[in-house]
Design a protein around this nucleic acid. Structure first.
Lengths: 252, 252
DNA sequence: ATGCATTTGTTCGTATGTATG
DNA sequence: GCATACATACGAACAAATGCA
């Protein structure tokens, strides 16, 4: 099964079938080099497996073995039906008593922005009512917002506020998209999180599209209750974060 | 589509097609009652949709509408290809500086146990080496353990210890499955977690089988570093927890 | 909604080189 | 030398997810 010598010329074909180094290792380290050198950029797309196998003159399985290795080490991200991509920086979401969206994003030297998807009053279902400590069916202000870092979606959050306790909040939120500012308008100067619960599930098609993530990867879901200085519950928030772009970090 | 009158007799067929209440609501509330009364037990299996539709004398779609409602409210869990199950108690995994497996399970009034899947020395790969602060390739003790609560799997954890720093640990772990005890043998009386990182991914087939969960639901993955009293890193642990059976809770 | 092209994922089977006893 | 086991590599076919017209 030996190939003609000229194909072993490194300039035309980078794989060396004689020196005892396995082909997939050669390919993996070559790709790793391209990523390290910046020839392949974070978030950028790698050639398809078919292209790589043609380029290196090996079987597709061999390329896949190399990609598997790079994927395991977190350098690339493989998505069925789409392709392989150079891994982006992971955005650590550090859970602290006073985490605010904009500060979180700025800490990673990215520009925060947001898109309000919904803002209206709704009756509380049982889950929301329990969390807020209000009667089921009583009015709550719902704010659904897509959070972006440098225009890449990183969170989809549903905020629930007790409307009767915070009169004028809906109007305040219509005036400003910043929750902290709107709360200040209705007299809440400070608030902090009481407890954060984390779970994971598959995204709905809408969520996957909004967060620009494949439907095959789970979202992290946080639920948390925010209280004001007196300990009164003022918010129940449910956040969705795309994996593995976002990770949640607890530092006690 | 009307059925003969006698079938409307509540004792033989619980659905009432005359009083204006939609069939799926009647079925949902009937099932909800069976769950509340304990006739259907947490984790137990509901009859198949076909059985339910025969039992209630309605179309399978109507049963599905009822199950959808119960699923949305979290009372039952529908798994494609397996069936519908009464939701079990969620096991909150509270992240604290000194969380120990057995204490976590006992706090939920369940009996902790574990199965050691692997216990041996391996060379550190880069990720583990970075976390432990040792050279890549240096020896680490690997302990992989399936954690059970009342004989139901709730965690799959890979513990990595620096072998050179903790001489005799492998032998100590062979003698006792309890990590805290084994560490005490090699001179570590106390340890605590420095940071916990949470993400989520789909389980491997093996993980799904071990954790007795469907392959369509994600696992929560935690990574954490434990240090002794001096701040020396003594453990890097990776834990997998099945959703939605286990949730992670952080209380600042 | 439907079909089609693209791309990755999975599973067969086959062959080869290397290390082991 | 021989049998065995294992990792590597290749080939073909099909399944599944995605994106697009």
């Amino acid at each position: 099964m030996n190939l003609p010598a000229e194909i072993d010329d490194p300039s035309t074909c980078p794989v060396n079938r004689r020196d005892g180094v396995t082909l997939w290792r050669q390919i993996a380290s070559r790709l790793q080099g391209d990523i390290a050198s910046g020839a392949l950029k974070p978030g950028g797309r790698l050639p398809t497996e078919a292209e790589l196998s043609a380029q290196f003159g090996v079987n597709r399985h061999t390329v896949r073995r190399a990609l598997e290795e790079l994927s395991r080490s977190g350098l690339v991200r493989v998505e069925q039906g789409r392709g392989s991509f150079v891994a982006e920086d992971v955005l650590d979401y550090t859970v602290e008593p006073r985490t605010r969206f904009a500060e979180w994003i700025r800490k990673h030297n990215k520009e925060p922005s947001g898109i309000v998807r919904q803002l209206r009053e709704i009756p509380a279902d049982r889950r929301v009512a329990d969390a807020l400590g209000v009667r089921s069916g009583s009015r709550v202000v719902l704010l659904e917002r897509l959070g972006l870092a440098d225009d890449r979606p990183v969170s989809l959050t549903r905020h629930h506020f007790p409307a009767t306790r915070l009169k004028g909040l809906l109007a305040a939120l219509q005036a400003t998209p910043r929750i902290t500012d709107a709360l200040r308008v209705v007299g809440v100067d400070d608030y902090m999180r009481l407890q954060t619960r984390v779970t994971a599930r598959m995204p709905t098609p809408t969520e996957a599209e909004l967060l620009r993530m494949p439907r095959t990867r789970p979202v992290l879901v946080t639920e948390n209750i925010n209280v004001d200085r007196d300990g009164t519950v003022i918010e129940f928030a449910i956040g969705c974060y795309p994996t593995p772009r976002v990770q949640i970090v607890f530092e006690p």
